[in-house]
Simulated assay, not measured.
Amino acid sequence: MTITQQRHLESACATAEVHWRRWTVDMQVIVTDPGCLAEARLTVDTELDAVEAAASRFRADSEISALAASSGQPTEVSELLAEMLGAALQAARHTDGDVDPTIGAAVIALGDDRDDIALDSPVPLATSVTRPATWSMVHIDHRTVTVPAGVVLDLGATAKALAADRCAARVHAATGSGVLINLGGDIATAGSAPEGGWPVLVHDGDDEPASLVALCSGAAMATSSTVRRTWRRGGQRLHHILDPRTGASADPVWRTVTVTAASCLAANTVSTAAIIRGRRAPDWIRHQSIAARLVDCDGIVHTLGGWPDDAMCRPR
């Protein structure tokens, strides 16, 4: 998990922060103008309310649940959901289908069918699901979306990252403050960073290998993990990142993959695809011209693209 560490700031009085839990993850907002913290938190909550109403497959009244019941008919959606679906399809294109939003039925069949699933919670065996479609069969025309009958969309691989980007932009626009948004390891920033950058401690846990970086203004980071959001089925430990081609949890070659990029959405797209690609991931990431940190199943750290130097702020 990636958690910002406020205590590493040399001048704590120059910033203010708030922590809370939502969507079963730790969330955090840090602003460089302490006087606007309450407004920043309200702005973030308002944005997350809208994201949940649009894209939560755990809510029967969400727009994405309505799409699942549309029987393949063209359906008009909100601008927000259209943007989120467009982002998910772009991620699928960029990753050659490794990140595919049409995996919802497979995710549910594996037991990830509720928002509050507990670590190592047992779930009953389910029959395998034959996926009736792939991402290329989902069509968007402005705000009109057509999803093949029987397809359940799951935007979990991109929605939270896009929400982090949107929250950072909205807080900065509303307050003028520099801001860092951390939605369970999906980190986005906007506005001016504190002197020396935004300090971020990257690690899986207190006893795990750690790396401290300082994100520049406007930089983003995402971590994808096979050791978070796990459960057991039939004696097998499963996790929430599925290989679209098999409908099963991706082989846990990597415990975590952390990526820095110009947006959280871009970082999360690469980190999620890296988990799915397994041993093929390093060569693919090298061609992305980004910095990344991968921790393998034995706890050995692998760094690419100049990590951590290329993930850090440099004097200008």
Rank of each mutant, 00 (worst) to 15 (best):
W254E: 01
C13W: 08
S225D: 09
H142P: 00
V99T: 03
D100V: 00
D298R: 11
T102S: 15
V138G: 11
R280Q: 14
H94Y: 07
A14D: 12
H19D: 14
A88F: 05
A126H: 10
R293G: 02
A133R: 09
R245F: 05
I3D: 14
G176T: 04
T2W: 00
G97Y: 07
I3V: 12
C216D: 11
D116G: 09
C216I: 02
E63W: 03
T127A: 08
A190D: 09
D113L: 05
Q5S: 09
A311M: 02
C167G: 07
R143D: 13
A173N: 14
L85R: 04
R279M: 10
A157N: 04
G205A: 14
T158C: 01
T146G: 02
I275M: 11
D186M: 01
V107I: 15
A161G: 12
R57D: 01
V227R: 15
H287Q: 15
P315L: 11
E195K: 09
A210T: 07
P308F: 10
M137W: 10
L37R: 06
G86C: 03
Q6G: 06
L85Q: 07
I290S: 11
L110A: 13
V77T: 12
G97T: 12
F58Q: 01
T246H: 04
L201C: 08
R93V: 04
R316Q: 13
P132R: 11
R277Y: 05
A210G: 08
T158D: 00
G234K: 12
V227W: 13
L48V: 11
R131M: 15
V129Y: 14
P101Y: 03
V179L: 06
L48N: 13
A91T: 06
G97H: 10
D309Y: 05
G197W: 00
H287C: 04
A40K: 05
A210C: 04
L201N: 08
G86D: 12
G97K: 09
G299W: 08
R170P: 01
R286C: 06
A267F: 03
